[in-house]
């Protein structure tokens, strides 16, 4: 985080977002602001509505009510649900990123790693093969994938490498906001640690804002500044990550924290 964030404006303003599936609640009346450089973790168990909320903010789902305002690069706040589809999709592949739990959902498995990373650059009009390839190799390096794997397909990569490739693919356009859905979900513990450390470094270095959905409180502690605890579609507690984890107030958060296995 840079030192001068107190006076400037939030990047995302979420107000009263609800999503109902018929009479069932996906998430209800969620409001918060996300600031530049801030990482927000949304935690809760399966079915708590955390992924529904993430998808509502990332415009992958239309909320039943509420507004989401995003501060564009020209400093104007725009309601992302009132944008034209062309503009919204452009925003999503330039200024935003989305990291899926399953890398296959976020990668093109049948094209090379280099093309996976380069796709966003080509989508915004880069037309120099050599430069696109150089950027791809540079980003593979930043996510600790050797440059000589640039022509390999992700099918030949391990789970951890695929996830790192997905991250590189998202970051190549230098987005300001990244959504992550259980980014360490399917990975071995040691692979998780490496990925988290990498994410933590990149977030700090690039000044990224991120919203990370996870059921893993250790992940939340390691990479987030702020935490939102959800249960049955509602936010039950919200605050500074170490405060929520070390002095949980809501009964559900206390249960969650006391359920962690200690090693």
């Amino acid at each position: 985080m840079s030192t001068d964030t107190i006076e400037d404006a939030p990047l995302l303003k979420v107000a009263g977002v609800s999503k109902f599936y018929g009479s069932r609640i996906g998430c209800e009346n969620v409001s918060f602001e996300l600031w530049p450089g801030e990482v927000l973790a949304i935690v809760g168990e399966s079915g708590s509505g955390k992924t529904t909320l993430l998808n509502c903010m990332a415009t992958r789902l239309n909320p039943s009510s509420g507004t989401v305002y995003y501060r564009m690069r020209d400093e104007t706040f725009r309601d992302i649900y009132r944008m034209g589809e062309a503009e919204r999709r452009l925003l999503m592949r330039t200024d935003w990123g989305f990291v899926h739990q399953n890398p296959a959902d976020g990668l093109r498995m049948t094209v090379s790693a280099g093309a996976n990373v380069g796709e966003r650059l080509m989508a915004v009009g880069e037309r120099h093969y050599g430069e696109i390839r150089a950027s791809a190799i540079d980003w593979l390096g930043r996510v600790e994938i050797a440059g000589d794997r640039v022509d390999d397909e992700p099918r030949a990569f391990s789970g951890g490498m695929r996830q790192r490739l997905q991250i590189a693919r998202n970051l190549v356009t230098r987005p300001r906001l990244i959504f992550m859905d259980e980014p360490t979900g399917g990975l071995d513990v040691s692979v998780q640690a490496r990925l988290l450390d990498l994410l933590r470094g990149l977030v700090g270095e690039l000044g990224l804002s991120a919203i990370v959905v996870t059921h893993d409180l250790a992940v939340a502690r390691l990479i987030s500044h702020r935490m939102m605890v959800m249960k049955d579609g509602r936010v039950v507690e919200h605050g500074l990550t170490d405060r929520v984890l070390d002095d949980p107030q809501a009964p559900y958060t206390q249960l969650l924290v006391s359920s962690i296995l200690q090693v």
Partner: peptide, 11 residues
């Protein structure tokens, strides 16, 4: 708020 606390811790 959390941002202010973080800012206080930083500085």
């Amino acid at each position: 708020d959390p941002r202010t606390v973080l800012s206080i811790r930083r500085e």
